[in-house]
Design a protein around this nucleic acid. Sequence first.
DNA 1: AAAGACGGACTGTCGGACAATAGGGCAAAT
DNA 2: ATTTGCCCTATTGTCCGACAGTCCGTCTTT
Lengths: 240, 240
Amino acid sequence: MFDPVERAPAYIKVSSAIEHKILSRALREGDVLPAELELAQQFRVHRSTVREALRQLENAGLVARPPGAKRMIVSRPEAAKVASGMRHALVLHEVSFVDVWEAMMVIEPEVAALAAMRRNQADLVALTQTSEAFRDSPEGDPTSVNIVALFFEQLGAASRNQVLVLAKQSLAQCLAPSLARMIDTVPQARARITDAQRRIINAVRDKNADEARKWMSKHVRDFKRGYEVAGISPDTPISV
Amino acid sequence: MFDPVERAPAYIKVSSAIEHKILSRALREGDVLPAELELAQQFRVHRSTVREALRQLENAGLVARPPGAKRMIVSRPEAAKVASGMRHALVLHEVSFVDVWEAMMVIEPEVAALAAMRRNQADLVALTQTSEAFRDSPEGDPTSVNIVALFFEQLGAASRNQVLVLAKQSLAQCLAPSLARMIDTVPQARARITDAQRRIINAVRDKNADEARKWMSKHVRDFKRGYEVAGISPDTPISV
DNA sequence: AAAGACGGACTGTCGGACAATAGGGCAAAT
DNA sequence: ATTTGCCCTATTGTCCGACAGTCCGTCTTT
């Protein structure tokens, strides 16, 4: 008979109010927020309450403080931030390696195909450099896995699709820790990755979408093979 | 010669400490957090500081308060929460409709194919009911678009892949507002959606992955057509 | 002009306070 | 025996006020 009466704490109301202003672009990226005390006066709440609201927005990546600055500025959430939120969710939902891998099998080949169609010269240069950096990175170097991730990221950038980039980044973050183990364990992994990267780059260079898709597909499939060889069960939940 | 000294505010340290305990499963879902005052004593900080930390975790969906409860409990981020974070990011990055649509074209057909392979009886029933609900929903009903979203969501559930579900949900949230406009503007939209849903359900029922993929592909492609007919430019940035 | 001193504006943190309320226990009422 | 009413305690939401640290612009000194 009655609707539940809405009873949100003030800090929620304040943060929603600011959030709304940001999402509706009344506050634009780079704008400096008013000082906490002024916000408190405008909202007629105490400064502590404003601070609680700001912490929420800060965590969402909607406001940020440039290093060594005093006031907060409006910002848009970095891909890495969103991805890390997604990673937390996936970890806590005990998502297993195959699930992530399956998602990669869906997304990465298409991203490669898009990249092949849309890449420019700068993309090619970046990809080539990254691939060479991986090839030359010493055996057992813990940064190798970051270079692999960078390759995927640059390919995403070349695809010119922010949405897919965001989704990809989460997957990469989830995979990184175990991928590092895998590369160190499986002797032939480095060579296979280097080879796959080369072929993908060639396909992208030639704007050959089908070829790019095909090789990326093989590349991702290879990851799973690597895990099997390394004796990592596909059902291992991903972890921090 | 020297590394930059790390200077994180106390509220960050506190929230990271708790976050770490949650991600490492030392605190499990459903556990009640200690009271704010006790946390403050343990961390040797003021209660306000603890509260700022809690606001961060609350916003990340790592802790939550069941409606009408006093203490906070550890929780895992709901898909909707993560998706809404992603949606904010996409809105602020001025991602256009085509970008979202392109991502759908990548993800949805494969999800449909997976669903065809893995669905059980309950999935079929749910999908059928949802499709009927859409067919019977009155012209111009603002909830129609929610029913369409529900259909996609249930298909995601049937695919048994949490990762893809999470990614899908963000897309759906981004599209919903403009989709509502489109359905109301384009006369033949409802019929075409109903038809596509029927064919997808049939393919899923028959465990025919290729057919499911094909029809979902058509279905999503149709959305774009609908937007064109409705005179909505593909480059329109998605909005709140 | 470069280097240092000064003051204002904010933030990070703290101590303390108080009203509101969830939850438990216990007694009265049906 | 279950419901209702009442009291008490633990805990949250919010407020007040305070102070040190620090960024930044200005003013002085060399």
